[in-house]
Amino acid sequence: MDEYKGILVIAEQNDNIIHKVSYELLNKGRELADELNVPLDCLLLGDDGIHVEELNYRGAETVYYMKSENFSKPEEYLYKQNIVKFIDENKPEIILIGATNFGRSIAPRIAAALKTGLTADCTELQIDDDNNFIQVRPAFSDNILAHIKTVTYPKMATIRYKEFDEAERNVDREINVVKIKPYMDKYDEVEIVQSFNENDVNITEAQIVVATGRAIKKKEDLKMIKDFANKVGGVIGASRALVDAGMIGSVYQVGYSGNRVKPKIYIACGISGAPQHLAGMKESETIIAINSDSSAPIFSIADYGYVGDIYEIIPNLIRDL
């Protein structure tokens, strides 16, 4: 299908700020575009006042900016209607979308509307010797890596945040922004009543995460972990066991059904290291584990481990570090 050409990154903005995953996609997208010798473009839907030139600085050749105040409230149906129309007219061969919550919710709608394949949560993208686009994704709760080819057009993938480095910013790159009118401006079946930030904890952005689990016996004891986190300049995280026990909110949960984190340092205090927990933190740069059971699986992925009682060692660490 020769009529489909080029790579399109669908960028994401939150409250008019471009999400960093967009720059990561532009970095990987550039690599693929150079290999295939095709253009790399970017589409962004949003309200007035977004610094979209930044997407040019990060390597997009043409930035398509579709403006409507209704795009400031993320809603999948309205976004989908507009993006699908754009794709029908511009026919990119490969479409990359960040696997953020919104990206993961909107991408399948777009793929279904286009009756094309979508590979979720990719961790790597490659062009093979026959110029096939290969999408690598973990499956079966992260136990395997599947290499996937798409036989329809366009080929779509969502890519996890922090999987690739951000594209370098180069302000000498040409600014080329094409403003386009939305094809559909309003969708009456859905009303966004309210948007709010309940708490601003975002453990996915932290450089140091101090996480704890079922070793914590009562809620008050979490103070020790908080003090430890404060001492090392980190934020607190938790295993699902602790969340399920009602001791801490789910925004703090690390793992397969919680947040995936990739900090510089992850300190697991009294966490056994179940596969579903590891799925959310095993890519951390340095892993430190403290556990009283020397056979706990968490030790097998730790850079530094200490076999001991957290109630004894953490107060010492707070004092000594």
């Binding site: 994401e12 939150n14 409250d15 409230k73 993320p74 809603e75 953020t100 919550n101 919104f102 919710s105 009456d188 079946e189 859905v190 009303e191 966004i192 009543v193 309210q194 948007s195 709010f196 930030n197 309940e198 975002n202």
Partner: peptide
């Protein structure tokens, strides 16, 4: 959580 916020949404 969608785009970093909670959202109350009404759908027909």
């Amino acid at each position: 959580n969608i785009c970093g916020s909670k959202q109350v949404r009404r759908m027909k």
